[in-house]
Design a protein around this nucleic acid. Structure first.
Lengths: 198, 198
DNA sequence: GTTACTCGGTTAAAAAAGCAACTCAGTTAT
DNA sequence: ATAACTGAGTTGCTTTTTTAACCGAGTAAC
C-alpha cells in the first residue's frame, strides 16, 4: 500500500526536501526576489533543469507547503464516516488542526513559521499564486460535495471561513501572543464560524 | 591546470571517496570477506552496478590507495631535472616520502594505517592482487628507464629495495615503536640501500 | 534606441545511476 | 550427487541528471 522504498525513491525524496529547505531558508534570509533559482540550485548542488523537474515554478518552491495540502478538504469530505454530514466533518478536521498547531490553521508561533507566512503575504507574486491554489482546492471540494451551484457555494463558504479563521489566528500571533494562549479562543472562533455555516 | 570542477566531476569524486571510506572502514571492522560488496553499496546508498563502475573489483576497493600511486616511480624518473641520474632521483623521492610519513613508505603509525596494512597483508586475495599492481608499476618504471634487459633489471631492483624498506619500517612500527622514533634509522636504511644499488 | 545583462524557464543530447535478472564459482545441506 | 545458496561481477533497459545552449521579458547603460 505504501510507496516503494527503493534507492531511487529515497534519493528523490531527499533531493526534494533539500531543495525545499534550502530555498525557504534563502528566501527568509534575503527575500524572495533577491534570490535567483540559480542560487538555490547552487546551494543544493544540482543543476537548474533538475530543480525545475522537481518544482514547476519559482513560486512553487515556497508554496509547495500549501500544495501538499491540496485537496485535503475534499479528501476529508470523501473519507468521512457514514452518517456524518460534510460540514461537521470539516469542522472536526479543522479543530484537530488547531489542536496540533498545524501551520495551515495560522495557530503556530514558531519563528520560522511566522516569518514564512510574512514572506508569502508580503510578496505579491506569491500571494497571487496562492489564490490559484485555493481556487483549485475549492473546485475539488465542490466536486466532493456534489454537483450544481449549491455544492459550489458551500465549498466557497467553507474555505472562506477557514481562511478567515487562519488569518485571524495569524494576526494574533503576529501581535506577539503565544499559540498556546490563543488556542482556546481560536477553538471558540472556529466553533462559532462552523456553527454559523449551517 | 587543475581538473574541471563542474557539478558532475565534484559529485563523482565525492561518490568515489564515500565508497572508499565506507568499504575500508567496513573491512577493518569485520574483515575483508565478512563484508559483501552489496553491504558496501547499501552503506553508501548506491546500487551494485554503480559501485562496480567506480571500482573494477572488490580488491580494488582496498588497493586503490596503492593504485593511485601507480606509475609514480616512472613519473619520478621521467620528470627528474636534467643532469640528474634516475636512481638518485628515486632515492630523493623516497626520502621525501619518509619525511612526510607517507604510508607507502611503511613509516606511519596512525592506527588506521597500521590496521590497513595488516588487512592487506593478511588477506591472501589482497596480497595477490597487490603483486599484480607492483608488476605493472615495475614495467612502467622499466619503460621510463629505457629499453632492454638492463632497464628491466634496474627497475626490478629499485622496486624490490623500496618494498624491503617499507616492510622493514612497517615491522618496526608493528613492534610498537613510533614513526618519529624510527625515522632516522629509516633514512639511514634508505641511504644504504640506494647507495648499494649503484 | 540599440546594446547588453540578468533572470525565469526550456530543450536536446550525453553521462550516470538504478533496477532486475542473469552468469559463474564455490559452499553447504540433504 | 544433486539441489539450494551465496557472493562477485555483468547485461540491457529505464530513469534521472548534467551540460550547454537557447528563448523571451524586463531593465539598465550609453
Amino acid at each position: 500500500m505504501n510507496e516503494p522504498t527503493g534507492l531511487r525513491a529515497r534519493k528523490k525524496a531527499r533531493t526534494r526536501d533539500a531543495i525545499a529547505d534550502a530555498s525557504i531558508s534563502l528566501f527568509l534570509e534575503r527575500g524572495f526576489d533577491r534570490v535567483s533559482v540559480s542560487d538555490i540550485a547552487a546551494a543544493v548542488e544540482i543543476s537548474k533543469p533538475t530543480l525545475f523537474r522537481y518544482f514547476p515554478t519559482k513560486e512553487d518552491l515556497v508554496l509547495h507547503r500549501f500544495a501538499d495540502h491540496q485537496g485535503e478538504a475534499a479528501r476529508v469530505v470523501r473519507d468521512r464516516g457514514s452518517g456524518i454530514e460534510p460540514v461537521p466533518a470539516l469542522h472536526r478536521h479543522f479543530r484537530a488542526g488547531l489542536d496540533r498547531f498545524d501551520p495551515v490553521t495560522g495557530l503556530n508561533d514558531h519563528p520560522e513559521v511566522v516569518a514564512f507566512h510574512r514572506l508569502v503575504f508580503t510578496t505579491p507574486s506569491l500571494a497571487a499564486r496562492l489564490t490559484r491554489y485555493q481556487l483549485e482546492d475549492e473546485e475539488a471540494l465542490a466536486d466532493a460535495l456534489g454537483e450544481g451551484i449549491r455544492a459550489r457555494l458551500c465549498a466557497a463558504q467553507v474555505l472562506a471561513v477557514q481562511r478567515v479563521l487562519a488569518r485571524t489566528n495569524w494576526q494574533k500571533i503576529a501581535d506577539g501572543r503565544t499559540a498556546r494562549d490563543v488556542h482556546t479562543e481560536a477553538l471558540a472562533d472556529a466553533d462559532q464560524a462552523f456553527e454559523h455555516l449551517r
